[in-house]
């Protein structure tokens, strides 16, 4: 799939305008990674860290 897209790219660039290169799969993957990252951070910081006893306040 990737090869085909790169093969087409130069002609598209020459004609300009239209964007045929739409890596929707990559976008979806990165979106999923992003969601995992955000959820992990929320869990690690807000639940595990702040939820523990004896939070150091000074």
């Amino acid at each position: 799939m990737g090869q085909n897209e790169t093969a087409h790219a130069p002609t598209d660039d020459a004609s300009g305008e239209t964007e045929e290169f739409d890596p929707i799969g990559t976008l979806t993957l990165i979106a999923i990674y992003f969601v995992i990252l955000v959820l992990s951070w929320v869990y690690i910081y807000y639940i595990e860290f702040l939820g523990r006893d004896l939070v150091v306040v000074g």
């Binding site: 702040l50 939070v55 150091v56 000074g58």
Partner: peptide, 10 residues
């Protein structure tokens, strides 16, 4: 964390 729950350093 620093402003709300007041988490501080040693």
């Amino acid at each position: 964390g620093a402003v709300g729950p007041g988490v501080a350093m040693v």
